[in-house]
Structures are given as C-alpha cells and as structure tokens.
C-alpha cells in the first residue's frame, strides 16, 4: 500500500494542513476586522463578555485561591532552607504575575469557555443556523465569530488580573497567618521586586494574546467542524487540546520576547 510509506504520508498531511491553516488565518483576519468594517454588534460583544468572562469568574477565583495557597506552602518550604522566607512574597507575586496567572487563566478558559464556544458554533453549523444566516445576507463571521473573538481578547486579561490578585491573597493567607512569615516583609519585598510594567502589564499582554489564540482556535474548530453530532463532539475535544498546547507553546515565545 502506497499510504504506508512515510514520505507520501507526510506529503499528504502537508497538503491537508497548509490550506487549512490558510483558511484559519483568513477566518481570523476577516472576523477581527469586522469592527473596522462597521459590521459589528456591540450588544453581541457585551453578551459574549458576559458568557465568556462573567460566567468563568467563579472558576477563576477558586482556582486562583488554591494556586496561591499551594505556592505559599511550596515556596515556604523551598526558601526556609536558605533562611530566605523574606522572599516568599516576591516568589508568589512574580510566579503568578508572570507565568501562572496568564497560563492557568488561559488553560481554564480553554476548558470552560473555549469548549463551549466550539460546541455552540459547531451545533449552529450542524443545525444549518450559519447557513440560514448566510442566506439572510448576514455574515456569520461578523455576527457570530467577531463578538466572540473580541470578547475573549477583552475578557481573558480581566480574568487574569483577578486571578493574580486572588492568588496573591491566597499566598498571603498561607504565608503570613499560617506559616508566620512577617507581614511587613512579605509586602515590602513584593513591592520592591515587582515592576508594574515589566511584570504586571507584560503578564496582561500575555493574557490578551492567550485570549485571542484560545477563542480563535475554539471558534475556528466550531466553524470548520463536520456538521454532525459526532463531528461537533470531536471538534470540541480538538479545540481544548489544541488551545491548551497553543497556550503553552505561545507562552514560551512570549516569555522570550517580553521578559
């Protein structure tokens, strides 16, 4: 069988993948530029910020709280050996602001909101809703995809800010009242070493990039899903897996560029 050879298989995979990536890129550009073309519904955008952001808030707060507390414990046991527990506040804040905040927010967002986006758009496709829209001379990229993309870009940094703050508070609760680190030192060391531009803002830039990538992958997977129940299901799985890997890969690149 010809298909069993490696080279034709790679060739086939490339022939399949490259046009798909081109289509995904065109999909992204024409959706992102919808507000510029005035083909954009502000109300739909707010609706998506609600669906993607507000409804993910509780999950983020709980996750952030535990993440911060674990960081407090682990950081303490690592630092106490060197008598450097005064650096605990710095450790917690920098870990959260630079890496854990944006990355965990994005991963949780991909699991909670991204999968829902793919399933929603996929089932709109399966039930011909997108076709119906197209036939009513309404561009689904502008009406359906653009508000979701912009909603993600907007909601994820806000979620990340709240994640950072709640995480630091969780870390504080473990460090100061439970483990007995001096509270003044905790905050003073943190303030001395955290830079607003270098750490906080760059972390939020990361979060916005992740928000874009996760919603892009989620909406694209929904949009290009096979229009059956099975197709939507596998697109949802693919969306979460691809979005999570993309977040981790992109994190490496952004960390190298920003910090």
């Amino acid at each position: 069988m010809k298909e069993d050879f490696l080279v034709p298989r790679i060739g086939h995979a490339v022939r399949e993948t490259v046009p798909r990536m081109g289509m995904a890129a065109r999909f992204l550009v024409s959706s992102l530029t919808a507000p510029v073309r005035r083909d954009f519904s502000f109300r739909q955008w707010l609706r998506q910020i609600f669906g993607l952001g507000v409804l993910s808030l509780a999950l983020m707060v709980v996750a952030a709280f535990f993440t911060g507390m674990v960081l407090g414990f682990q950081g303490y046991y690592a630092l106490v050996r060197f008598g450097a527990t005064s650096a605990l506040g710095t450790l917690i804040a920098l870990s959260l602001l630079r890496e854990l905040g944006p990355v965990l927010t994005a991963l949780l967002f991909a699991g909670r909101a991204g999968s829902a986006l793919t399933a929603e758009i996929g089932s709109m496709k399966a039930t011909e809703q997108l076709d119906a829209m197209e036939m009513m001379a309404v561009n689904p990229l502008a009406w359906v995809v653009a508000p979701r993309l912009w909603g993600g870009i907007f909601a994820v940094p806000i979620l990340c800010t709240i994640f950072d703050l709640v995480g630091i508070f969780g870390g504080y609760l473990v460090s100061v009242p439970i483990l007995g680190v001096d509270g003044g030192t905790f905050w003073a060391q943190m303030q001395a070493n955290v830079s607003f531009h270098g750490d906080i803002l760059n972390g939020l830039i990361k979060a916005a990039c992740f928000g874009l990538v996760v919603t892009w992958i989620a909406t694209w997977q929904g949009f290009s899903a096979h229009p059956t129940a099975e197709g939507v299901g596998s697109a949802t799985t693919r969306s979460v897996v691809m979005a999570s890997l993309a977040v981790l890969g992109l994190d490496f690149i952004l960390t190298a560029l920003l910090f």
Binding site: F50, T161, D164
Partner: peptide, 24 residues
C-alpha cells in the same frame, strides 16, 4: 454584569499596581 466585571478588573489592576507592584 459586564459593567461589574470590568469594574472588578479595574479595581484588581489598581490593587495590583499599588499594593503589589512598585507603582506606589
């Protein structure tokens, strides 16, 4: 809800900037 959400984000950012970062 979206208004509250955005407001929460701004407050969180302000607290981060003043209490955690060295903007203060």
């Amino acid at each position: 809800w979206v208004g509250i959400f955005v407001l929460l984000g701004i407050v969180a950012l302000a607290v981060l900037a003043l209490r955690v970062g060295n903007l203060a």
